[in-house]
């Protein structure tokens, strides 16, 4: 196996809110206030190999977007190492650092808030390649046209502004912009969540066509298991900042190991399920400000036992390429 495109080892991201002046005074006076820290991502290992589509699934607040941002190099990690082609991302400087950043691009959920409303589409797409010397002023128009055509857009519309397009078209602009710098790795953060079903299908098909044509690698972040199942080769499930399970797509949907994954899969409404009786895992997603000790899932887990409340389960291999973080696996053995 060649070196993976991106390799994360024990990566964490903490966001803390420092006490303000008033808070500090209160603390001096003995009030029970302190700095608040959110462990958005907590010791995550993740590997993405060349040509792979990895689906990253989780509910809101599980840290999947934060992880995506760290992978894309938009946000530094608080702890752990991120290796890009075997080299540590944080230590790359100069031209190599720029290349690493260019090679990894991100497509966001809401194209309206990720496209500058005051810049014409042609410049949204063409500005970066021009700055990075991927195209010249003289070839600029042709280059932009080609990028737009590839994303399934009519190049005659390039003088327009983002607000003049529909949601699906705007998402295509986002895709064209990401692909214009000729990346090899794309991080899609809920890129189809805001679209109507028929438009979503068009964009998903476009993603798959582009993958084939340009030999792209994707990290596909979504809460929609149907979408992830359709696209991904491998699926990673997150819960409250930690990876709870990872396996090849077919394996995880056929034989989910972690109780959370099982619950998630059984509750996804499916078009082929009629008059289903929904059951629901009990309880709420706990606040990441104050996660439960031990296994984060234990307060909602029907199989939790004493050990789950104190010890954090580590990812362990349960089958070939299939890893799960659950104490139940030890119990059986």
């Amino acid at each position: 196996m060649s070196t993976p495109i991106i390799e994360l080892k024990g990566v964490s991201k903490r966001f803390s809110k420092k006490l303000d002046f008033a808070g500090k005074i209160l603390q001096r006076l003995g009030a029970p206030v302190r700095d608040e820290t959110v462990h958005a991502v907590d010791g995550v290992d993740l590997t993405v190999n060349k040509g792979e589509v990895v689906g990253l699934v989780g509910e809101s607040g599980c840290g999947k977007s934060t992880l995506g941002r760290m992978v894309a190099g938009i946000m530094p990690a608080s702890d752990g190492t991120i290796r890009w082609h075997g080299k540590e991302l944080a230590e790359l400087t100069g031209s190599e650092g720029r290349r690493a950043k260019l090679q990894t691009q991100m497509i966001f959920q809401d194209p309206m808030s990720s496209l500058n409303p005051r810049i014409r589409v042609a410049d949204i797409i063409g500005e970066a390649p021009l700055v990075h010397g991927l195209t010249k002023r003289s070839e600029y128009d042709g280059y932009v046209d080609e990028q737009m055509r590839r994303a399934g857009m009519d190049p005659t519309l390039k003088r327009r502004y983002p607000h003049q397009f529909s949601g699906g078209q705007r998402q295509r602009i986002g895709i064209a912009r990401a692909l214009a710098v000729q990346p090899e790795f794309i991080v899609c953060d809920e890129s189809v969540a805001a679209l109507d079903v028929s438009i979503q299908a068009q964009i998903l098909n476009l993603f798959m066509d582009l993958r084939r044509d340009l030999n792209l690698t994707y990290l596909f972040i979504s809460h929609d298991l149907g979408v992830v199942e359709h696209l991904s080769d491998r699926v990673v499930i997150m819960y409250l900042g930690r990876v709870v399970e990872e396996a090849p797509s077919e394996e995880i949907f056929a034989r989910p190991n972690h109780p959370y994954t099982q619950a998630l899969l059984s509750e996804v409404p499916r078009i082929d399920a009629r008059k289903k009786s929904f059951a629901g895992v009990k309880g709420e997603i706990p606040s990441p400000l104050n996660p439960p000790p031990g296994c984060h899932f234990h307060p909602r887990c029907p199989f939790a036992f004493d050990r789950c409340k104190v010890e954090r389960p580590m990812l362990k291999t349960v089958a070939s390429g299939h890893r799960s973080a659950c104490h139940l696996n030890d119990k059986v053995a």
């Binding site: 028929s198 299908a201 068009q202 149907g226 199942e229 949907f253 499916r270 078009i271």
Partner: peptide
Amino acid sequence: IGSVPSRNKRGEPLKQI
């Protein structure tokens, strides 16, 4: 219905409108 991604059609292009 063809646009909904589902288990049966994994990897195949969706029947888009």
